[in-house]
Design a protein around this nucleic acid. Structure first.
Lengths: 333, 333
DNA sequence: CTGTTAGCGCGTTCAT
DNA sequence: ATGAACGCGCTAACAG
């Protein structure tokens, strides 16, 4: 007979059961499953054997109770309709899992939902929180930091004591966007973005306008409600006379391009368009969007690293890392 | 002075601290935070007050230790580049959170990674597992079921004892796709799909081919590696002579349309295209894709319901729920 | 290297 | 309705 002996007995097998079967103490069992613990190879073997026969697995929840740590990391995110957000989450969770953490994902719809949901996290002794959403207010983040929970923000604004951040290079993007459009012959520039919650969006907008001013070229701001496809589609009409536009993200840029074409406009002949994020759709043949690649994989790695280092030393001053963006030249400019 | 008194003392406040400050026993504190427990309103109030002052929160991990339950539910998913997957995950996590569970998200890349990662779940006493990926092998799922962990599969194949499933109506989709294409005047049909892991994809393919046979119209199967945009784009060349194609998902259909257009083909004049899933991009102006809407929100609700009901009664026979799909007529047919 | 003891933070009897 | 005592599954500290 092979395989676990009690495949589905009602009760869970505990370290006690394993200890008895292996003829050792419970501490020995514990040590057998603890890295760098001092156990003789033979006892370890006995334990492992007994454990396998019984189908035993260490209860990490109980372990966490005594070690006062948990492997859980909260990941709060909103706006998953934006493909970039989906990618971000994938990368973040992968980074986390790779380092042996368990990501608990909290969809933070705009509004107070975020508060309530994040609040729950405090009950689980999470060893950290990663925030990509625009939703969670500064106050809440500060509360976490004060509670001693490491927290790092991705592409968010607020500088909060003890809260680390990783942000893409908004300044470079804004300036280079302006320069690129001008260089391509655009005379009447515009930037479309929601004045709303997205921090990086606002920064890119400012950098863009600043650069336009420096270049002495006319530029205006076209506001929208959300930085989404639908808004991009709808806002195309408001672009009369504009021949070069910086769209604050690709998601909206796709809508903008579709909107321009629907109105009979030619891209890039009539209007040059440049986006941001380099979502998969940006490289789709229907768009061939020139855009800035934002490396969400390295951002994820950085964020997790920051988290870990703060877990090790919670007292360090808050850090701020900026990730470089790179222009991907395609067909829309 | 308002607000928590010990905002960031090193040690966590426990029920003991609250009990002492409120002048009651620890049991009283416990009961104050347990629904339907017998506590007098006054003691409850005292406890709540003291708790607030101290910034106390029940440790759910410790609670789970004695109640032998946890609020965690594993969510394993792969292929997040497909927008439909992203939506699915969003809906699932929202459903879970709404019912007061904590979704722990496991990105299951193809291959053995899934095994290892899911394996970890057993250490956390998860009270259930939701699987949307194509990756996890039957054996692993069975192991969970045997271990007494409720598990429900979304759009997956294998019928396993004690494992519930919710699947979209593949049969209806396949048949209706064929009928719709024929009705639109197509004479030479094709279905493009990967023979690979996706269960629903295979089913839709079969239903489609069956319907074509019944309708006495020529149809062939165009195989691809993955059901992705890139493959769709590349496979357009293989469609010489075809004037009506059922693409197994929208993600690939977008690629297919772009591929056809690149070759100078007109959609729907030369080739009618019909997809599946109704991802956001399907309604983008660049595509206007006729497709089947798969209601991943109700699927999520159903899956969670199944999970819960099995948690309540683990002995029920495995159930199989099919969710209806509906044809969304747009411009590609 | 090993076993013994003493908690981790909490829920639950069982008396009162 | 309330408190005392015990146990959940495990690890840390201390002997030996």
């Amino acid at each position: 007979m092979s395989g676990p002996e009690k495949p589905s007995r009602g009760r869970k097998v505990t370290s006690f059961d394993v200890a008895r079967r292996a003829g050792v103490s419970r501490a020995a069992v514990s040590r057998a499953f603890t890295p760098n613990a001092s156990v003789s190879p033979e006892t370890r073997e006995k334990v492992v054997k007994a454990a396998k026969e019984l189908g035993y697995r260490v209860n990490y929840l109980a372990r966490g109770l005594t070690t006062r740590r948990s492997d859980f990391v909260g990941v709060v995110a909103a706006g998953m309709d934006n493909p970039f957000r989906a990618l971000q989450i994938e990368q973040i969770t992968k980074s986390l899992v790779r380092r042996n953490f368990r990501p608990i994902l909290l969809p933070a719809d705009q509004g107070e939902s975020a508060d309530h949901v994040m609040d729950q996290l405090l009950h689980y002794n999470v060893s950290g929180v990663l925030v990509t959403s625009d939703a969670p207010p500064t106050a809440l983040c500060a509360e976490f930091a004060a509670a001693g929970v490491p927290i790092v923000l991705i592409n968010k604004a607020d500088t909060i004591p003890s809260v680390d951040r990783v942000v893409s290079d908004t300044n470079a993007a804004g300036k280079l966007a302006a320069a690129t459009l001008v260089e391509a012959g655009a005379k009447q520039l515009a930037v479309v973005a929601a004045p709303g919650p997205s921090y990086t969006a606002r920064c890119r907008l400012q950098a863009f306008m600043g650069a336009c001013y420096a270049l002495d070229v006319e530029a205006r701001v076209i506001p929208v409600e959300h930085n989404s496809y639908r808004e991009g589609l709808a806002v195309a009409e408001a672009l009369k006379g504009v021949d070069g536009v910086f769209c604050i993200n690709d998601y909206m840029a796709c809508g903008l391009i579709d909107g321009l074409r629907r109105l009979g406009g030619k891209v890039p002949d009539d209007v040059r368009v440049i986006g941001h994020d380099d979502i998969p759709q940006a490289s789709w043949a229907a768009y061939e969007l020139t855009t800035f690649r934002q490396p969400c994989d390295v951002q994820a790695e950085q964020a997790v690293s920051l988290l870990i280092s703060r877990m090790d030393d919670p007292t360090t001053a808050e850090r701020f890392e900026v990730t470089p963006v790179s222009l991907v030249r395609r067909a829309t400019v």
